[in-house]
Amino acid sequence: MVKRVSVVDVDLCVGCMMCVFACTRRFGEGGVSKSAIRVASIGGIERGFTVIVCRACPDPPCAASCPTDALKPRKGGGIVFDPAKCVGCGNCVRACPYGALMWDEESSKPIVCTYCGYCVNYCPYGVIKLEEVKEVVARAP
């Protein structure tokens, strides 16, 4: 079974962005420019937050929109990314209804979650967790 980062209860989120910083820190940098997870208020912090991260779709529309096979479906759900094949067209970013593919301004390529779960280790309030992708029977017949 493959893993994904899932949002357990978004109402537990305090908007600290520890997960966002963790994701870029994987590359040994401080900041947010390489982060595949994002936290934003839903119109003022008093209303709470939204946590946006790849949900590892069983039939990912982002991969379907990729003209160069740089993004391919991962077996069991989600995607794998081959930056060498990516021409930076941005179709994938537009294809994801969650906006879960971020854009790396430096490389002009998408930032793709690798489902490593590093961010989960820094969430103090149990908002996100690393879990196995459950089989979803959602494919059109």
Partner: peptide, 15 residues
């Protein structure tokens, strides 16, 4: 109390 929130990059959420 309705919500506790945090500054960016602070896990405390004292607000």
């Amino acid at each position: 109390l309705g919500r506790r929130v945090s500054c960016a990059h602070c896990p405390v959420a004292c607000i």
